[in-house]
């Protein structure tokens, strides 16, 4: 993990390694379609958010590309794995490449850690590929002796552009 040395010094090596492992698994499980295991990396009160405009600060009074709590994430997973979605009859595959994880902040009260990393992802379905790129921002929180993702925010470079359906988590 990279970042400001003073900030990094506030996390011990074990915590850094666990967070790094957590974030690496996060995209890897998405690419492998292991959605129940992917969701298990998230805290109970988790949020998955893909803003619809650059720098969006509010998801309540403004539309989003995705804005899901755990119940909606479970519902998306149920559809992805249900086997009865017409638009998923042909397999949809994704491959992520992620940049270095950067420690961006630590909440002194809750211990919650903010980590960002750049990503690119290629999606394939029905003889067509499309590309996604942008910044992941994770809010990672200690739960018992593990770390869990409370919020994942995905800022796409083309977030305010037009899209064909976005069926899988990015």
């Amino acid at each position: 993990m990279q970042g400001d040395p003073q900030l990094l010094a506030q996390l011990d090596d074990a915590a850094r390694e666990k967070i790094q492992w957590l974030l690496d698994r996060e995209t890897e499980y998405l690419d492998q379609g292991r959605y129940p295991e992917w969701l298990a990396l998230y805290a109970a009160d988790c949020t998955y958010w893909v803003p619809a405009v650059p720098g969006q600060v509010d998801a309540v009074d403004h539309v989003s590309l995705f804005f899901e709590d755990r119940a909606l994430m479970e519902m998306r997973i149920a559809r992805l794995t249900g086997g009865d979605a017409h638009s998923l009859e042909l397999p949809l595959r994704v491959s992520h490449v992620t940049g270095p994880a950067l420690l961006a902040g630590i909440d002194s009260e809750t211990g919650e850690v903010q980590v960002t990393r750049r990503f690119q992802a290629t999606e394939y379905q029905d003889r067509r590929t499309r590309d996604f790129a942008g910044l992941f921002t994770y809010y990672v929180t200690p739960v018992n002796d593990a770390w869990r993702i409370r919020t994942k925010r995905v800022d796409l470079v083309d977030c305010d552009g037009p899209f064909e359906p976005l069926q899988v988590f990015i």
């Binding site: 638009s87 064909e164 359906p165 976005l166």
Partner: peptide, 23 residues
């Protein structure tokens, strides 16, 4: 805010409903 929720659910590219229509 309910109208925003409706938009996210029905009209967003990530809608669980819409991809099957577009298919």
């Amino acid at each position: 805010r309910r109208h925003i929720v409706y938009a996210n659910t029905v009209h967003s590219p990530s809608s669980l409903i819409k991809p099957d229509d577009l298919e």
